[in-house]
Amino acid sequence: MTNIVSIDKSRGFTRMDNDLYEALIGADLSGRELRVALAIHRLTAGYNQGAVKVAALYIAKMMYGSDEAAEKERANVSRTINDLIRQRVLYRDGGSRDPISFLPCNEWKLDPKRTVLKSTQSVKKTHATVLEITHIKERNTNLTANAVVAAVAPTATEVETEAKDQDSTSPDQPEASKAERIPFNRIQDLYNRICGDKLPQCLKLNDKRKANIRKCWNLDINGDKPFRKSEFWEGYFNDCLTNKHWTGENDRGWRAHLEFLTREENVLRVLEGA
């Protein structure tokens, strides 16, 4: 008796190049990134195509089934596609409506991950040892004022200071107000770190820039506030860099800046893959 399962050719099957197969097995991708990559492979190799024009909504439907779930996850899928393009797993020459394909595995530039064990204090002044992940994909942990915006790790002193600030809050202050405290400076630092080589540095957060960031923080999409998630700002800024017009490839040499990228109409364009 053999353990080899034969392929039922009557149902069809998709071949996968061995190098690609082994690269996907060994790649440090998030679950969503791997599922998107497999969907792209199904739509290219599965139909004997080198590249395919496909909307994020269609891939979301493949991943989540129902139209309602696909619509809710479309922005996340679009961001994941752009993240795979940035890491050179996928390639697309143009905008979101242009064909997409895989790059050779030896050209992939996957984001490194590293973990740091740090001893600090919790808000209640109880000693704790926490695992701080400075770059991790697809975490669903919501940010609060003393949380880490992806890959911008605070020092132990900063965490302690924020804990003291949290304790010094008036007991009469509503809980919702505490939860909506916004880490403006860390978002500014994250923008400068990711976009500073291609876009103008943000030297100061004035009232208008803070107002835009506050709108992003409170932006509600299908009952979710994505900009309160630890990885979302990093993914969003990386997505913005895929727009060639915004990075200076235009007849004026104009480049986008933090204030422009946090305007609601531009945020929605990026999230919708327009």
Rank of each mutant, 00 (worst) to 15 (best):
F237G: 02
F102W: 05
F102S: 01
C216M: 14
E160A: 08
T155S: 07
D207G: 03
A37D: 07
G31V: 10
Q87I: 02
N266L: 10
I25R: 03
D189F: 03
D67N: 13
R181N: 13
G94D: 08
I213L: 05
N146S: 03
T115R: 13
K53R: 11
E107T: 14
R228P: 00
H135E: 12
D165N: 06
R228S: 00
C240I: 12
N222F: 14
E162S: 05
N185M: 01
G26Q: 11
V52G: 02
W217H: 11
V159P: 00
Y64V: 15
V152R: 05
W217L: 06
V36K: 02
S122A: 08
A128E: 13
N185F: 07
A128V: 14
R214A: 14
K137P: 01
Q121H: 12
G253M: 04
R186V: 09
A23G: 03
E73I: 09
K109G: 02
N142W: 03
F237H: 04
L34I: 09
A70N: 07
P174C: 05
E73Q: 14
R139H: 06
F260W: 13
G95S: 13
G65Q: 12
I133H: 04
N140W: 03
D8L: 01
K164M: 05
N218T: 12
N48V: 13
R193T: 05
R228E: 02
T14M: 13
R97K: 13
I100T: 07
L258A: 02
K125M: 13
L103Y: 09
S168I: 07
C195Q: 09
E138W: 03
F13M: 00
